[in-house]
Design a protein around this nucleic acid. Structure first.
Lengths: 141, 141
DNA sequence: AACAACTATTGACGACAACAATGATTGGCC
DNA sequence: GGCCAATCATTGTTGTCGTCAATAGTTGTT
């Protein structure tokens, strides 16, 4: 992992991989994977979204969304509801159990993050978080 | 991509994915992928390493290293040399052409990073880079 | 009423990563 | 010196994921 003279984008890639691995390990015990978590997390920020929106925002193929929602629905973490205005569309919403699961997973995520950001003190972590968030918001539409 | 209340580890994961996609797009034209680049980059920092070390440091399976080195050797970017002390082991070294290719790819990587870090000024970028580097050096052995 | 565009879904194909098994070589141990 | 466990690179296998094309149902347009 030591590539000292690497540039920032590459560092982001490497650390993202590592962070993803850690998250996956945590999620494994609940039978989920990172993609499920990403979907739940997005749903928690919008309170219901049609699958097409999930595909666009998360960058997954529509067919991938189908099986992800299938899995989560099987665990009763989300529901498919008919869209009032458009009968083609189905809006996916978090169930109460889904919200609980997300809270639990977030706690586990915090532990992972604590581990990952070992060498940084509280102030540094806040600074890093702020910087990353600004970069992430770069391409919101 | 907007998951506003996400924690830092998850942000790292999402941004790492995006950064990886951008890098892969750049590398595509030279017939390489991110893993090849990671391998070249590591080799440039140690001047020769047995495949087992590459596997450990980069976190890829030994079998993955085989095909990666195969690819790079086919492009004459690296060479397999017999290890003086251990005939089981083969040390992989950069060729001159490999060093050139790495330089070119680094330039392209800088362009990608510039794009990714759009909203940050020079000072912020330096701060982010320093923070990421400290996290990355957390688990050097 | 006909037609193009869109939503979710299914199915297929190729790429690729993680895992187990193998041949060659090394070092330890008695 | 001979046996045995461990190690390195390689091969093969399996499962997963991303991408693409095709389909059924629905919407809006003309």
């Amino acid at each position: 992992m030591r590539a000292l003279n690497a540039d920032t984008g590459y560092l982001l890639y490497r650390l993202g991989l590592q962070s993803g691995r850690l998250f996956n390990a945590i999620l494994e015990e609940s039978g989920l994977r990172l993609r499920h978590y990403a979907l739940l997390r997005y749903l928690s920020s919008v309170a219901g979204a049609p699958q097409r929106e999930l595909s666009d925002r998360l960058g997954y193929d529509p067919s991938a969304i189908v099986s992800l929602v299938d899995d989560l629905q099987r665990l009763e973490l989300v529901e498919r509801r008919p869209s009032p205005g458009d009968r083609r569309s189905r809006i996916v919403v978090l169930t109460e159990r889904g919200k609980d699961a997300l809270r639990d997973t977030d706690k586990a995520g915090n532990r992972v993050t604590d581990d990952l950001l070992g060498p940084l003190d509280a102030e540094d972590r806040a600074a890093l978080h702020a910087l990353l968030q600004r970069v992430a918001e770069r391409d919101r539409s």
